[in-house]
């Protein structure tokens, strides 16, 4: 395997009951780059990204075949501990979902469940995570207030802070800005650029401009199949496939 590749997906198939939602997809995701997954609604892009940290395990009636290797280890092998996998592959969701707790407890949640009890250490982690997500200046004086009182954009950055507090090495974003206004969206996009220095990032988005702005590589999904994958610039300016071109020029979707 190429040393630069963080994640390698081979012949991935997924069924919801009898319905096949992903069809024989293979893709290589490079380390410390941002890879965007685009496609019309219902194309399977969210399902795909949820295979990378096995969130689909939580859905009843899902069957998966194929291989997803992260750091050369197939995460669907029998001996893989899902819990520690998800710790290494963090995920940020479409709708900001801070827990109904204080801001501090939200960020400290991950470290705590992974066994860190020392108060000072927790404080350090919380401060660092909030600084990394540029939230520190806005909330440092109200860490003990409920996270549910933050604005949508702040909540989403809090969720990112919460995710990086457990020091994952891959970050998955599932349409992280679709519930946010343009200003908040801009902040998150800047943050993603900043975060790729330390993390390998996969982002699902239905917003093509966003994919073009933030990503280095882009994959285009249609009806559960990866139609085209390549450097973002090349895919947007010079798509190889007809249907990719139709989609990015807005002829459907």
């Amino acid at each position: 395997m190429d040393k630069e590749n963080k994640i390698e997906v081979r012949n991935l198939n997924l069924w919801y009951g009898d319905k096949q939602a992903l069809k024989n997809n293979s893709i290589k995701i490079r380390k410390n780059h941002v890879t965007a997954i685009i496609g019309p609604s219902g194309c399977g892009k969210s399902t795909f990204i949820r295979c990378l940290n096995r969130m689909n395990d939580l859905v009843e009636g899902v069957k998966i075949t194929g291989e997803v290797s992260i750091n050369n280890k197939n995460i669907y092998d029998k001996d893989v501990d899902v819990v520690s996998l998800r710790r290494r592959v963090g995920m940020v969701f479409q709708k900001p979902n801070p827990f109904p707790m204080t801001i501090f407890d939200n960020v400290a949640y991950g470290p705590r469940i992974h066994g860190i009890k020392d108060k000072k250490k927790l404080q350090e982690i919380v401060e660092k995570s909030l600084k990394d997500t540029t939230l520190w200046n806005e909330v440092s004086d109200r860490l003990d207030k409920s996270a549910l009182d933050l604005s949508g954009g702040q909540m989403q950055r809090l969720c990112i802070a919460r995710t990086i507090a457990v020091k994952p090495d891959v970050l998955l974003f599932d349409e992280p800005c679709s519930a946010l206004d343009p200003v908040a969206t801009g902040k998150i996009e800047d943050l993603i650029q900043e975060l790729k220095k330390e993390y390998t990032i996969v982002i699902v988005t239905h917003n093509m401009q966003q994919a073009a702005r933030v990503s280095d590589y882009t994959g285009y999904f249609l009806l559960g199949e990866l139609i085209e994958f390549g450097k973002t610039k090349q895919l947007f300016e010079n798509p190889k496939e007809k249907s990719t071109e139709d989609y990015i020029t807005g002829r459907f979707g």
Binding site: N53, L58, R87, R88, N97, P100, G110, H114
Partner: peptide, 12 residues
């Protein structure tokens, strides 16, 4: 979404 958030961080 609360549950998903927790699972996604590697909670049991």
């Amino acid at each position: 979404i609360y549950r998903e958030g927790s699972y996604a961080m590697g909670a049991t």
